[in-house]
Amino acid sequence: MKLKYYLLAAILCTMLHSCVILSPKKYKALLAERDSLSNHNTSLEAQLSSLRADTMNLHHQLADLQNNYNALNANYNKLNDNYSSSSTKVSQLSSDLQKREQRLKEVEDALKKRDAATNALKDKLQKALLGFQNSGLTVDIRNGKVYVSLADKLLFPSGSIVIDERGKQALNQLAVVINKEPDINIAVEGHTDTKKVINLGQIKDNWDLSVLRATSVTRYLTETQNVDPHRLTATGKGQFQPIDPGTAADALAKNRRIEIVLSPKLDELYNLIKQ
């Protein structure tokens, strides 16, 4: 029994020896530290919550930025494709423009050659026909063609389709020039005034008179002066293309004429235009 008491006393002594009795001051300090730690923990939890919210916000911003980037990248790719396509079109247009400019230059050069040839032909005809220019003969250029206009009195007796000697001399001089210019096409046009044809036998009207006078000149040039008939065309214009619309005698005289239209062959020019 005593042994039990001794053991209990030993245990109590041991327990009392191991326990530390805190003073009120230390106890309060521990409580304050505990409260501080609790407040710090609360602050950390608030910061953690804020950081989580900020993280979520940043995720949303990142998603928006990624969407914007994807849209901008798609637009960039589209613009790049458009640029490539436009660049190809620009290159093609530039090439086409260079070709057109080259063709334009060739056409302009051909026109200059034509104009030079036309002016040279006019000069030759004026010199060859100088002696007839006071007898109702004129030489001028219209629309790139040389017009040799011969008054009817220079070629035909009144109301006749037979060329007289003075007219033949003028046509002989004309033939000398055109036979040396094989690249010239020739159109012989007959023109009359507005007076009606009366008592001219087979000639019914001004159409007939203009056509028959044109064919008379054409026959003379081909049969007598050996002008290549493949180069000639004979047409009658009647009274419908007057030089002077007046009704006075001098106006009517101007309208009664044969016009020989000489035009350089323009095959080269036409080929350039058709390309």
Rank of each mutant, 00 (worst) to 15 (best):
D267K: 08
N271E: 15
L232I: 12
I243Q: 03
P242D: 12
A234Y: 01
A249R: 09
K254E: 10
H230A: 11
A214C: 08
K254Y: 05
N271T: 10
L266N: 15
V261L: 10
G236I: 02
R231H: 06
T233A: 09
K237E: 09
A248E: 13
Q239W: 02
V217F: 00
I273Q: 12
G236F: 03
H230L: 13
G236S: 07
R231S: 10
T233Y: 07
T235K: 13
D250I: 01
R256C: 11
G236W: 03
P242F: 05
A214E: 00
P245N: 12
F240K: 11
T224W: 05
Y220T: 03
F240P: 01
Q225L: 04
T222Q: 10
N255H: 11
T218A: 12
K237I: 01
I243N: 08
N226R: 11
R257P: 01
K237D: 00
V217M: 07
P242T: 14
V227N: 08
Q239F: 11
A253P: 06
A214P: 00
L221R: 07
D250W: 02
K274L: 06
P242R: 15
T215H: 06
A214F: 00
Q225A: 09
Q225N: 15
Q225V: 06
A253M: 13
V227D: 05
N226V: 04
A214R: 00
L221A: 03
V261M: 04
E259I: 09
